[in-house]
Design a protein around this nucleic acid. Sequence first.
DNA 1: GAGTGGTCTAGACCACAAA
DNA 2: TTGTGGTCTAGACCACTCC
Lengths: 253, 253
Amino acid sequence: MVEKNAGLALQDDETEIGFKPLYAQVKDQLIRRLVDGTWQPGMALPSEQELARQLRVSQGTVRKALDAMTAENLLVRRQGRGTFVAEPEDARILFQFFRLASDHADSGGAFPESRLLGWSRASADEAEAEALSIASGAPVCRVERIRVLLGKPLLAETIILPLGIFPGFDALDEIPNNVYQLYSSRWGITIAKADERLKAIAAGDADARHLGCAPGEPLLLIRRIARDLEGKPVELRISRCLTRDMHYVANLP
Amino acid sequence: MVEKNAGLALQDDETEIGFKPLYAQVKDQLIRRLVDGTWQPGMALPSEQELARQLRVSQGTVRKALDAMTAENLLVRRQGRGTFVAEPEDARILFQFFRLASDHADSGGAFPESRLLGWSRASADEAEAEALSIASGAPVCRVERIRVLLGKPLLAETIILPLGIFPGFDALDEIPNNVYQLYSSRWGITIAKADERLKAIAAGDADARHLGCAPGEPLLLIRRIARDLEGKPVELRISRCLTRDMHYVANLP
DNA sequence: GAGTGGTCTAGACCACAAA
DNA sequence: TTGTGGTCTAGACCACTCC
């Protein structure tokens, strides 16, 4: 009765080690359609029944793949409406990637404003190349800006982007506040997840000037590597944060 | 054919707003048995079939509850063996709750040693009471210790425990390295999750002396609220970390 | 009313572990 | 061989949304 896992138009690795459950293969197929732009942010996917027919698997298997992708914030499911590709709107990006909050009352979910200091083409140094899995010396664009919340300088950040992945970024006329939305609309790149490393450092002269604090004041250093749908690192971001009245929030697990 | 959700020996809140899916009710039941000690760390649960019979639901519904609990690190499932209550062994606690790593080669998964400075009974101050959801002035035990990795002082930490939850803690003769294991074995309390808040601060004189750094050196301040199976805060821990050669790891999401 | 996702069930076969 | 969890299927009913 139950059909043998025969791949069903899915790439079947029946080799000893390369086995994947059907629902994982389905998930890979669906992610492929996100990567190649078949389904763009905001669009509705076909219904579960329809996907099941197309992929020749049961609805339950499709559901398991969709549920996993929903848990990873790639999709949004709405009962009675359908399943949609997640969009990089401010509210979601803020919630998912911005972990700084006020010590006192919740900062109301305001997206911090940006004061651009400049951006320019450069060559990746050793550390940047390592973090982004590109060749040392490869062309990148470095963006420097100050993030401001409620009129107060909050952090200084440097964004390093490989120009091989974001061609023409260095020639932009301006850079919006929500860059992840720009990555999506202009280059079709979705930031799916990120790893962060945190340290405490002393403020240098430049950061002190920009943030309005004394040189030597303790700052929270955040080094973020952001990854696309396939897990490839596409952005390196280094932030120096004033945490006198703010804190970084982490949940375990 | 399908039986109406009638609670099935589960507490049924069919009131307008209080509805819960069956699998969530099953999960609540299972967690209750963890809380009341029916199933202790390391023990095997009954099989899915058996649980399904006992609770008068289908195996699939039981599975959904077990999968959710496994995702929360409350259970461990082993194919062909069974489902077991997760234990607070060093390796897991290290992986789940210790987010500091060396900047260079992985620190090999070594559990940091502890150098105890002392512990004593005290009264909760405003901030501690607020964090632990207890009355201001309620009895607590404060533990001070230095964590050491590979012979080098890594961080100074203060653990604040409500004596209402851990009676007799202040009268202990000694305190082991892995306190979460002690909470479990001595008081039957499982640390299920924790929230952390991070800041950068300047080292005070005492911390500088203990950590072997200069006063004013930037330290990473971590304030952890650890919660039991029911989400109630049971431990407050404040760590001041030297992050010259270390960093804190966070994953988004 | 038609279509969607959300829940629940029942039963099959598979991979794995232990006796 | 027996029993376990892991996967997959098929079909039912429900709650919700939109026409």
